[in-house]
């Protein structure tokens, strides 16, 4: 039994050696699946997810049009005038410590799907694609906390890769607090980017913002925490989202630069700031 989160106060170090305001290592790639319209792979620490986007395309069947909450995933904004965003999540059985099967009807997964679906629908310019569907399938390969945040980030990257017009990146991360609700510790520090152990032991929330702004696109808090601590947590979370956005942005630009170098794409207008050297 290694030390737990209660040892934070000893040296202001978290269970994995981070400080309160540090993100875990984030690694991301886009265009991992050449055949797909858009694809991405993202690691936040040991949380690993991949995403494939199909569309915007015609709905698979006439029945799909205009239906919300379609069978395989959650749909948002799927009225006739704009594209529907269908999100489906598959959690691999080997992704957590205990091998666990999760069925399609799992309520937690459904909730994740609808959260991501509505968050992306707000940022994607779905009105440009009436009568069509944007289908986002997410695969969870490994879980170590901040799952929702990782899924949102991966989906954002895949949508960028698919070339779907969007307002800005939807970047997400989690924030927590160093002591439990019951401990009611006034001097608790906020924490950025919780791993699995911290998620288990401490209160936390997931926040996503739109690009560099402070506009919150997603805010999910499922644990009990004092209102007085919430503000600090949220501030740290929003700050983390900006860091995440910068990382995602760099991934996209690096890939773009490489593609221009390789000649896969032409350097287009509006890409002046993407220096090719």
């Amino acid at each position: 039994m290694p030390l737990d989160t209660s040892s934070y106060s000893l040296a202001l170090l978290r269970v994995d050696g981070r400080r309160w305001n540090e993100l875990r290592r984030i690694n991301a790639q886009i265009r991992t699946q050449a055949a797909a319209d858009g694809s991405s792979y993202l690691e936040m620490g040991h949380t690993k997810v991949m995403c494939v986007v199909t569309g915007p395309s015609e709905p698979f069947g006439p029945a799909r049009v205009g239906r919300t909450g379609a069978g395989a995933g959650a749909t948002a904004g799927a009225s006739g005038g704009e594209a529907g965003v269908v999100v489906s999540i598959v959690v691999a059985g080997f992704s957590s410590v205990d091998r666990k099967r999760r069925g399609r009807g799992d309520k937690r997964i459904q909730e994740l799907q609808s959260t991501i679906s509505s968050a992306l629908a707000a940022s994607l310019h779905t009105h440009l694609f009436p009568h069509s569907t944007i289908s986002i399938s997410l695969h969870v390969l490994s879980q170590d906390g901040s799952l929702l945040a990782a899924l949102i980030n991966a989906a954002t990257l895949a949508c960028v890769d698919a070339g779907i017009p969007m307002t800005d990146y939807v970047a997400a991360c989690t924030a927590g607090s160093t002591s439990t609700y019951a401990a009611n510790d006034e001097s608790a520090d906020p924490l950025l980017d919780l791993n699995h152990q911290e998620e288990q032991e401490l209160p936390g929330l997931t926040v996503a913002t739109l690009g560099d702004s402070d506009r919150v696109a997603v805010l999910v808090c499922e644990s009990r925490v004092q209102v007085s601590r919430l503000e600090g947590m949220l501030a740290v979370g929003v700050d983390g989202c900006k860091q995440v956005r910068a990382i995602l942005d760099r991934v996209v630009r690096d890939k773009g630069r490489k593609m221009v170098q390789e000649g896969t794409v032409q350097k287009g207008v509006g890409l002046e700031d993407m220096e090719v050297d």
Binding site: D16, R18, R24, D98
Partner: peptide, 13 residues
């Protein structure tokens, strides 16, 4: 169970 945890090594301790 086999548990894997990240360790971030640093120089500011």
């Amino acid at each position: 169970q086999k548990i894997v945890r990240e360790v971030y090594l640093r120089q500011d301790i």
